[in-house]
Design a protein around this nucleic acid. Structure first.
Lengths: 153, 153
DNA sequence: GACAACTAGTACAACATTCAATTAGGATGG
DNA sequence: CCATCCTAATTGAATGTTGTACTAGTTGTC
């Protein structure tokens, strides 16, 4: 027997579904309109900017962004072509590849940051009560944790 | 001057970003593994199933699912090729096109529903407290409303 | 130290999505 | 009534994403 969602649960779930779809479309649109980066490229640069030597392994990047390896390879290839990042063999592991943010990539991130943060505020953070934002943040931490621990079946 | 996010806000926002990414990937994966539908096809069928005569205008479908018109055209074309839906000219407006769910489409929806609901529960609803789910539902209703009212600039 | 089993990343092909251009019907205003 | 503008939907090309297979390096084991 299927345990269906009740009406309230269904409403909330539907609200999340359309809400995130609208939100990410709007954020992406804002960012592309006000910078030379798409949202996923921006995220790649953010991750790199927070890492020692502005460098991360491709696989770490993929896992952190919840993208497939193949997708990261393509995204990074495009970004490399544009001079935003650079790739080199990882010295400790011959199979690995390190992705490093170039100065140009850093400049692009800095240039885009204002637009993006303003957009995240206007579209999300300032629309929610602090309690709602906290509930969302904490809830999704558990959601992610659950999914990750289910992963290697 | 940019009004940056504080550390908490940043953490919550990041949690939402990776959380939804992981969630939708997992839901899509579950659904595709247990049925013949992808998540966006499932959503199309849900909308149609809730409509009078199991029929909706293409544009209504696009707006409801927050997809571009072009995307809906392509998605519906694929689904029509598989016999899940059917298209006919709208009688009241010569430009419009009505999309109707076929019996086969309804059967596919019914067959997929159990898997999908179970997955939504396991990955989201049952992982959150009722208060968190309510906060998410209500928060995103406002987020969406804000985006929609900003749309026609 | 050589075999199998595993991990990291990429290449290519199938598929999905976006963007711009196009077709066609409807509304408006002189 | 017809010129213009607007809306609905589609098309096709460019772009992005996924899935599978492949290459290469690593680890473990006997």
């Amino acid at each position: 027997m299927t345990h269906w969602l009740d009406l309230e649960q269904q409403r909330h779930w539907r609200s999340l579904l359309t809400g995130t779809s609208a939100l990410f479309a709007a954020l992406n649109h804002d960012l592309e309109a006000g910078s030379d980066l798409a949202l996923n490229e921006y995220e790649v640069l953010v991750r790199l900017s927070e890492s020692p030597d502005r460098t991360l392994r491709m696989s770490v990047l993929a896992e952190g962004l919840v993208h497939s390896r193949s997708r990261i390879t393509h995204t990074v290839s495009r970004m490399e072509r544009r001079g935003l990042v650079r790739r080199q063999a990882a010295c400790d592991d011959g199979r690995g590849v390190d992705c490093t943010m170039t100065d140009e990539g850093y400049a692009a991130l800095v240039a885009a940051a204002h637009v993006h943060v303003t957009s995240v505020r206007a579209r999300l953070v300032d629309v929610l009560t602090p309690a709602e934002l906290a509930a969302i943040g904490e809830g999704f931490e558990r959601v992610t944790a659950r999914i990750v621990e289910d992963r290697p079946v």
